[in-house]
Amino acid sequence: MTGAAAIGVDAGSTTCKVVAVDETGALLASRLEATHPRLEEQAAGLITALVGDLGPVEPPPVVATGYGRQLVRGAARRVTEITCHARGVFGALGHGGTLVDIGGQDAKAIRIGEEGRPIDFAMNDKCAAGTGRFLEHTAGRLGVAVADLGPRALGATAEEPISSTCTVFAESEIISLIGRGADLDAIIRGLHRSLVGRIVAMARTVGLGPPLILSGGVALNPGVRAMMEEATGMAVILPPHPQLTGAYGAALIALEG
């Protein structure tokens, strides 16, 4: 594999992603790993491995993003994930819109302009509510695999309301629901509704408008997608590689120099 013109690194809180693009911006290769505590070494290792995948080429320029962007050695620039996600979505889809990115420990809503620049954005605070961690934590509590959450939410014939979007308080509610014999799938459906409600409220602060685009690991959850469509009345569009959007945007920025 040759022709790599730029590399993007998204050193996220839950996963670390690296992607390489050619001079036209087409994605050539990628790697994704759960984020290690020693992020600096991990990012360097991933870049080395990716360059190895690409064959004997000069290491291309690197742009880093994500919460650990300052730890990425050798990065020509460090750009926030807001800008990189906007650029990544625009590069992948060719248009702007409202991007909702639900990552492991943060969620953001970004209104993307016609040139792929973020016009406005909102992010969750320190609280993990409304993020992938919310689903991951409660899935663990329910003994359900994360990948099964979406299908089970969609397959539920009933829904238990989860009033709190706080991860800790929601867990207390779940314990109460389990204690009174509530159906597990109905609880899972309620959890999705709670998360989507919070995300949509955040997206409305930036002027939620079509097209609605979803990225991040949680974009792979069909239950979240379906409920977002239901809550907003808009079709949800996914970029080709939802988890790599930030890293892809970083690579495109690196390509632009």
Partner: peptide
């Protein structure tokens, strides 16, 4: 300042 706050500020400056 938390990383979230710094990221918000930096992203705003980028816009």
């Amino acid at each position: 300042l938390t990383q979230q706050t710094l990221t918000r500020l930096e992203a705003f400056v980028e816009t």
